[in-house]
Nucleic acid binder design. Structure first.
Length: 657
RNA sequence: GCUCCCGUAGCUCAGUUGGAUAGAGCAACGGAUUUCUAAUCCGUCGGUCGCGUGUUCGAAUCACGCCGGGAGUACCA
């Protein structure tokens, strides 16, 4: 039961007498912002009265009198300029709560018309170890997958892994020239990662050496230009002053950018020159970038040796990825990587050309979208396909074969331009019925608020992030357990299990609780915080219910099957029960714009209200047996909703902590 | 140059397609434990919602213009 939805439906029936478009008006029924205004409020009368030239308060009273709400609300009140305030009837809340307490789905009815949804997320490059940058896509995507599925949609998760790109050529080149056989035997993926980094570093070295003189010249020129502009007298005219200020700023920013580039290139060169072995290696492989590209090209054209290497590397790489996903509790229904679509790419380009969508330009094959300057390159000058081509082939497959209604791409906001072009091209190509959505999220920034760059060297690996989170959690678990008044009651394995759930939950929650659009500042303390608005708080509330149940030796299953009835006398009980009834609302809220933080908000509020209930309403020592049963049922329902809600975010619960 | 995003309390952020007196967490300070887990609860302090103009009954939210920060922008994905 979605209360909000129910109220809107009831109002809509009346509103159709007032407007040909009652739905948008009914949308203006909201949860009340202030408890004094009741539980829900209708805000549409002011706008409606305006368009009809009526008095809003009179209109509000008129509509309020017509709406059939008697079973679920107290008589509506009109307040202020024409708000209709709605307060739910206690009996109605009680009846709904009792129903919800017995409902295995926690009061969430499946959607009437399920959609076929494909959620595309995580998409790491198999050649490189996963790092914090992959976290957001993986965690947000997994949560959306679970939530949409729970709402009743037919959802498929797909890990569109990068297993066919330039990086593979680099690994193959590294494998052929720099392999440490013993290290590869011991830890294949670790050695491949080392090879990737090595090739990347040497490539970067040559690039930097080649670019440095030019960069230095440009930097010096920028410095001179900036100095010269500064030396000029300040004009007296106000407009000219502003213009000068702007110009100076621009020159300063150019200077800074070039200074950074020089510094970065110098650093790359210095790093290699500081290590004689590296330098020697670089000298022996002057064409490394070009050679690595050739290895990629050979792989793509079916070269037997490189294909054999690819087949040799892939299982190891995938196994390493899966170990990480296992630990994070993330699973995919399919993992169709770039290589999977390789055979289909030529046909995509041909088709685009035939339909007149793609044209030759500077030797490349591009789609041009009117109004957009940048081309959408589906085939490079050297004949290779790009990720644009792969993405188009993927859409074709997802629509033609999988019959997708909706495809979510959970990808960094910086790829917004790519998706804009991709979706536009797909439409023109004929894929109009499918809803393609870029579920974008903010960039991970460093502590200095500057974008967190993968190649900066200071990459925080996902593995070490998780280890750190778990060990921090373990320390808290130990401390807390030993401080218990009755004495510690957890053995080592129990503590470790709790630490895993709490630590990993903390990481996920930190990501999910933030509006996905905003940039994310990477901070150990924030990501691993275990007090306040964190997963731990919800897990703790859950564990407290389990504590009550344990202490009272209650069989929760039997409790639900029994005849106990929820009664809501104390304000804390009412507040909690009403909050629990809004579970469905919260999930619908997530689905509306694919924002998991709507669910984290709900969970936090729920745990909050439970804590208040816990302080004020003794359960096992309730005054009467029926009150005890009522509170047990309410606590059980709270636990089930918390457990369900957290699990929809991919966060585990533990019975004691 | 063009396109896009961001600017809310000391810090990190919410703010549900415009609603009533802008909310949390952290930090600071003060309380609460003979009572089901104090990883908690209750309270205090803290804000020209970057600035300005406009749209209207009503703006943190919408439009336009500034200021400040960031991202993307032809063959990497």
């Amino acid at each position: 039961m979605n209360i909000l939805h129910e109220l809107r439906t009831r109002f809509e029936r009346v509103l159709s007498d007032y407007s040909p478009e009652p739905a948008p008006l009914a949308q203006q029924i909201r949860m009340a912002q202030d408890a004094r205004f009741g539980d829900y409020q209708a805000n549409f009368t002011m706008a409606l009265a305006k368009s009809r030239g009526a008095n809003p308060q009179e209109l509000a009273r008129e509509i309020a009198a017509k709406v059939d709400l008697a079973d679920l609300c107290e008589p509506p009140e009109v307040a202020g300029p024409g708000f209709i305030n709605l307060r739910l009837r206690p009996e109605w809340i009680v009846a709904q709560s009792n129903r919800q307490a017995r409902d295995p789905r926690c009061g969430v009815d499946p959607v009437a018309q399920p959609l076929k949804v494909i959620v595309d997320y995580s998409s790491p490059n198999v050649a490189k170890p996963m790092h914090v940058g992959h976290l957001r896509s993986s965690v947000i995507g997994d949560a959306l997958y679970r939530i949409l599925k729970y709402l009743g949609h037919e959802v498929v998760s797909d890990n569109h892994i990068g297993d066919w790109g330039t990086q593979f050529g680099m690994i193959i080149y590294g494998y052929k020239h720099f392999l440490d056989q013993a290290a590869y035997q011991a830890n294949p993926v670790g050695e491949l990662a080392r090879l990737y980094r090595l090739v990347n570093q040497v490539e970067g070295y040559h690039e930097a050496v080649a670019a440095l003189p030019g960069l230095k010249d440009r930097f010096a020129a920028a410095e001179r230009a900036h100095a010269a502009a500064r030396a000029e007298p300040n004009p007296t005219d106000k407009k000219a002053q502003e213009q000068r200020k702007k110009q100076l700023k621009q020159l300063a920013s150019e200077e800074t950018t070039l200074r950074d580039e020089v510094a970065s290139a110098t650093k790359k060169v210095a790093a290699v020159e500081a290590a004689p072995q590296l330098l020697e290696l670089a000298r022996r492989h002057p064409q490394i970038a070009e050679e690595a590209r050739l290895e990629t090209a050979r792989l793509h054209s079916g070269d037997a040796g490189n294909t054999r290497l690819w087949n040799q590397f892939m299982p190891e790489c995938l196994a390493a990825l899966n170990r990480m996903y296992d630990r994070l509790g993330i699973r995919f229904d399919m993992a169709l990587g770039e290589s999977h679509y390789q055979p289909a790419l030529a046909a995509v380009v041909e088709d685009l050309k035939q339909k007149g969508l793609a044209v030759d330009s500077d030797g490349a094959v591009c789609v041009f979208i009117p109004g957009v300057e940048a081309p959408f390159i589906v085939r490079k000058r050297d004949g290779a396909f790009t990720y644009a081509t792969t993405d188009l082939a993927t859409i074709r497959d997802r629509v033609d074969r999988l019959h997708a209604d909706l495809v979510l791409y959970v990808v960094d906001a910086r790829q917004g331009d790519h998706f804009k072009l991709l979706f536009e091209t797909a439409q023109r190509w004929g894929y109009r019925s499918v809803d393609l959505r870029h579920v974008s999220f903010g960039t991970i920034l460093g502590d200095d608020r500057r974008p967190y760059k993968t190649r900066s060297g200071d990459v925080v690996g996902l593995e070490s992030l998780i280890d750190e989170a778990v060990s921090r959690a373990r320390r808290i678990v130990d401390e807390n357990d030993e401080r218990k008044p009755q004495g510690a009651d957890l053995d080592d394995s129990a503590r470790q299990k709790i630490a895993e759930a709490v630590g990993i939950g903390a990481i996920k929650y930190a990501d999910l609780s933030q509006n996905r659009e905003t940039d994310y500042i990477f901070s150990w303390d924030k990501m691993l915080a275990l007090t306040g608005d964190t997963a731990t708080y919800m897990q703790y509330a859950y564990a407290r219910v389990c504590g009550i149940v344990r202490r009272g030796e209650i069989d929760r299953e039997l409790l639900r099957q029994g005849s106990a009835q929820i009664q809501l006398e104390h304000p804390a009980e009412r507040a909690l029960a009403l909050q629990l009834l809004r579970f469905h609302e919260a999930l619908d809220g997530v689905a509306l714009d694919f924002r998991p933080n709507v669910l984290t908000n709900w969970l936090f509020e729920t745990a909050n209200r439970f804590s208040t209930f816990f302080e004020n309403c003794p359960v096992l020592k309730a005054e009467t047996e029926s009150l005890k049963q009522s509170r047990l049922l309410l606590a059980d329902l709270t636990a089930r909703c918390l457990e369900r809600g957290l699990s929809l975010l991919g966060i585990e619960t533990i019975d004691r902590m």
